[in-house]
């Protein structure tokens, strides 16, 4: 349910909301600039948190604990005097790495499965369809937590697991796109020219399937960011001391009354990042139609 955690449902709405409807453009020049600025800051901050010692997310300064935002600490400090700005930026690094891994897994594996199902049809399609239904019927977030509780969590595990979560959606999109081009003339022509099945799938079909899959990629990135945040919030994401937006928010939750900035700063940055990716997705989808 809900938009949160690993809600992959917006993908379903994609197909129809792509029908051009008049109204507010969510990807106006202003929004695009906004999205670009937000993402530049988040990516820049992530890189800075690795390179610049002033932005060390772990440096504690007990004499400056629980300070509200100030010129010295832009987002304030937490209970052990760590700089929230530095921690939020470092949390961005976690989100970006996990999002990239998710995309790599979901897009590649999902598209591959979907194209194979659509191309071969019949029994292959039936088997893959059943597996996809199975994946959709599993409570993803809960199973990821189970796995994490047993094997531990690092970037790879989390990225791989959340990526797996997006596989069925990518597969469905790739499958229906494949079905719609499978019998088109250029594919038939290639077939007549003696192209092998592998070549047909990797060259002719993959190329035409790509735009629809890419359009979903933006949603997949937001799914990854939110899922990673949700897992860390519940304590099953990247383990401390690695900062993550979810665990920062969970930390801040205990200080809601006295030091709301501890929760608000990472929460707002997280929402702005997701919003920025959504805006780019809107832009991409529209251009595509």
């Amino acid at each position: 349910m809900l938009t949160q955690e690993a809600d992959t449902r917006p993908a379903l709405s994609n197909s129809r909301s792509r029908v051009r409807t008049p109204g507010m453009r969510l990807d106006s020049r202003g929004s695009i600039i906004f999205a670009a600025v937000v993402l530049t800051i988040v990516i820049g901050g992530a890189v800075a948190s690795m390179l610049i010692p002033q932005f060390d997310p772990l440096r504690a300064d007990f004499s400056a604990a629980m300070q509200p935002p100030s010129p010295a600490h832009w987002f304030g400090t937490d209970a052990t005097g760590r700089d929230i700005f530095a921690r939020t930026m470092a949390g961005g690094l976690s989100s970006l790495v996990v999002a990239a891994l998710t995309l790599a897994v979901g897009l590649v594996v999902g598209s591959f499965i979907g194209i194979v199902a659509g191309f071969f049809g019949r029994i292959v399609d039936e088997i893959i369809g059943t597996v996809i239904d199975l994946m959709l019927a599993l409570p993803g977030l809960i199973l990821i937590m189970v796995v994490v509780s047993l094997v531990g969590s690092d970037y790879w595990t989390i990225g791989l697991l959340i990526g797996t979560l997006t596989i069925p959606i990518f597969a469905r999109i790739a499958r229906s796109a494949t079905l719609s081009v499978r019998e088109r003339e250029f594919v038939q022509a290639a077939r007549l020219l003696g192209a092998s099945r592998v070549r047909l799938m990797t060259q002719e079909i993959a190329r035409t399937v790509l735009p629809s899959v890419l359009a979903y990629s933006f949603t997949a990135i937001t799914v990854a960011i939110v899922a990673e945040g949700s897992l860390s919030f519940l304590g099953y994401g990247l383990q401390p001391p690695t900062p993550s937006w979810g665990s920062l928010i969970a930390e801040g939750r205990t200080h809601l009354a006295g030091a709301p900035w501890i929760m608000l700063a990472p929460a707002i940055v997280m929402c702005l990042t997701v919003l920025a990716v959504n805006i780019l997705g809107e832009r991409f989808t529209r251009k595509d139609t």
Binding site: L2, T3, Q4, E5, P10, M24, L26, T222, V226, G229, S230, F233, G246, I249, R253, L256, M263, A267, M270, C271, L272, V274, L275, N278, E282
Partner: peptide
Amino acid sequence: VTAFVLLSVPTFVFGL
């Protein structure tokens, strides 16, 4: 615009 912005707020953040 409201729906689009709300869509970008994760539920647990929303609750908090």
